[in-house]
Simulated assay, not measured.
Amino acid sequence: MKIYADDQLLATGLRGGTLSRHTGNMRETAAQTPVYQALDIPADKILHIHQTHSDKIILISSPSEAQALAQQPAQEADAWVLANCPGWGAAILTADCVPLFLWDTTGNFFALAHCGWRGVVRQLPYKTAEALKQAGAKGPLFAYLGPHIQKCCFEVQADTACQFSPQSVLTQNNKFFVDLTTEIRLQLEKAGLTAKNIHAPAYCTCCDKDNFFSWRRDHIRQNLLSFIYKPL
């Protein structure tokens, strides 16, 4: 099982990362269960949302809140912030969008956001980092951008390109390409993260068919799973 993860995240005691396509299509909960079993993570302790490309963030401040939410239907949102919730975690699905992991020095405060371009335009990365700080995160924040579509493949129309910072838009042969990595970096730095604490390997889901699903490339509803979990 191949997991794209960040060493600094793992060093805090958190577990998390993005699974390659080799684990299968993660759109169905039933497909996720054997993955969590293989990782020795209790599937019923991983929270899920109904993603809508929004800027809505769900804050969980205790294990009891997490337990109550787990017993309800999935809520519409695109980011999780968990504070002091040992034994709990969260998951998102992506197929070109950015799985954004955020955490503090203690590993007791962490977040996971599904950052599609619409959510990024709505400042979801910035808002998630701010929500994590407001929840009580200790010390500097760290970020990891998991595998996602890179600027080489993310061609957009002019009306989409104009919604991004000029630094994040490239023009080639009268075509517009958006650099989601740069846009998210700008938002995280605005939230106070330093450049050295933002890890963004250039894994392109659209280019690398061997390891990743991609909606832009295949137009098939197949998803990668990203998760973050704080063991007891």
Rank of each mutant, 00 (worst) to 15 (best):
T181C: 01
D208I: 03
I220M: 02
R221N: 12
H219N: 06
L224P: 01
D159T: 05
Y203N: 09
F213M: 05
D218S: 04
F177L: 10
A161L: 12
N211I: 07
F212Q: 03
T182F: 01
R221C: 05
R216I: 05
C162N: 13
N197D: 15
C206V: 05
C162H: 04
W215F: 05
H219E: 03
P201E: 02
N223E: 06
F164K: 09
G192V: 13
V178F: 03
R217G: 03
C206D: 08
F227N: 08
L180Y: 03
K209R: 15
R217I: 02
H219G: 00
C207Q: 15
I184Q: 09
C206Y: 11
F227E: 06
S226E: 04
Y203L: 08
P166H: 15
C204A: 05
A202E: 15
V178S: 02
Y203W: 12
T181V: 11
S168V: 10
S214M: 10
N173F: 04
I184G: 01
Q167V: 05
I198T: 08
A202T: 14
L180F: 01
A161C: 14
A200F: 01
H219C: 04
F213N: 01
F213I: 10
E183G: 10
D218N: 03
K190L: 14
F212M: 02
S214I: 07
F212G: 01
T181Q: 07
F176W: 08
E189G: 01
L170N: 07
A191M: 02
N174C: 12
T160D: 04
C162Y: 13
Y203V: 03
K175N: 15
A191D: 04
N223T: 02
A191Q: 08
S165N: 13
A195G: 02
